[in-house]
Design a binder for these strands. Structure first.
Lengths: 238, 238
DNA sequence: CCGACGTTGCGAACACCGTACGCATATGGG
DNA sequence: CCCATATGCGTACGGTGTTCGCAACGTCGG
């Protein structure tokens, strides 16, 4: 009948809820989930921990979210709102495409856990933010004059997704080590050198000093992006 | 989480001895793990089930494999052996690159679980098969005459990885439904149409009858691959 | 004002999971 | 033959996602 451990629930203490700590809602749950994912990574997100963060029991979340997978889908769509796509009437289409691609990459690197989710679910999600992202892209590439705009979009964003998820996964590994990227790289070098031994072309690439990892990644992404845009430009009529 | 000092230990550095044919060996474990992953997907692979399949207890596997993550790394390298890269002296470099890209994609679609692993770990793995895959690519693109061969490789395979992992994730979702791809698509259509409502450019793309899904995916991959190769061709001297 | 009802929170429980530990057994070298 | 080492594995610990049934609550018809 009465609880045996913990404070005895009192009628007087039970009355009101904090107004600034709002009731459990789907939006609040998704927001907090994204916060946990960003701060501690995908393997740290459990329903129990998320419930505790919201001053709620673990199973209470299931009143607002059907399953953890659904929650992840909602989290992805939440983050998709951050991706910026220039308007369709942008004067310079290459600059516009570069902006959209860069915005996608920046979002992926800000929330590296999406690479895990994308690997498991692909782009089959139908959330409103992802849809409007796709719509803006379609509008842009159609206005540019591509005869098959969705083909061009798929090509461009396959590259962007491939590069971004690889980078995000790498950054996740680095983050898990608790070190800076440069420190982690130098600690990984012995194993890498051994693995590369006997492979002449790879060894050559590993011979030169790498330099600032962030600048290298930025340059690598920009290079590939230019390659893809060059290839796409050839498909433009005129 | 915990930062450590000293070189990062690599799975590949640790020795393994190879007696005649014991029931339990690292090779046998990895082979069986790949079989389970192919047949039942990544979420169906547990150490207990894998042990049972090998007529062994779950914890016996830990005599040959340090952790499940390490086992996944070994599994990835195992299937990496299937990827074919033409020799460096191939006469037609575009055909050679197309062959390598297609072989990667085919391997990814044969083992769709790798997209999940790639999303979590990226390409930081240093297994011998992955290394020799990279080495062959480097040899090919160097022989072709690319001034920055690893840049070209990174660009091409970012596209290939992005497209392949998206496809693999999609096929995983389809497989989980137990239906054919066409049946699953048609069952998904109502939700897709609703999500697309109000987005004119997307709705237009959804209006036409899709046709055979396999042929569509093949054509999409080939289109993007040609785009990337066109962009790369512009970087070739001469 | 009050009672019925749909909604929400939640504690307990279930069936798993990865894996650390310690003990039993098998094997091979001196 | 004996001992050292390698290998198998039963048990257990601390987690996981999720189901279920019950209690408390807000709302609204009467």
């Amino acid at each position: 009948m009465t609880a045996r451990t913990g404070p005895i629930p009192s009628v007087w203490a039970r009355g009101q809820r904090e107004p600034d700590q709002p009731a459990l809602s789907r939006a609040a749950i998704v927001r907090e989930a994204v916060a946990v994912l960003d701060a501690e990574g995908i393997e740290a997100l459990s329903m129990r921990k998320l419930g505790a963060r919201l001053n709620a029991g673990a199973t209470s979340l299931y009143r607002h979210v059907a399953t953890k997978d659904e929650l992840m889908e909602l989290a992805v769509d939440e983050v998709a709102a951050e991706i910026h796509v220039p308007p369709a009437d942008s004067p310079d289409w290459r600059a516009a495409a570069t902006e959209a691609a860069g915005s996608f990459r920046a979002t992926a690197l800000r929330h590296p856990w999406i690479s895990s989710v994308l690997g498991q679910a692909g782009l089959a999600y139908l959330g409103p933010n992802l849809m409007s992202f796709s719509e803006r892209l379609a509008a842009l590439f159609t206005a540019v004059g591509f005869p098959e705009p969705h083909r061009a979009i798929d090509t461009l964003f396959s590259y962007v997704v491939g590069m971004s998820t690889t980078e995000a996964a790498w950054l996740t590994t680095v983050a898990r080590s608790g070190e800076t990227e440069a420190a982690f790289v130098s600690r990984l070098m012995p194993a890498a050198r051994e693995a590369v031994a006997g492979h002449d072309h790879l060894a050559a690439a590993y011979a030169t000093d790498p330099g600032d990892p962030v600048a290298i990644r930025d340059a690598k992404f920009a290079y590939g992006l230019d390659v893809v845009l060059d290839g796409l430009a050839m498909r433009l009529p005129g």
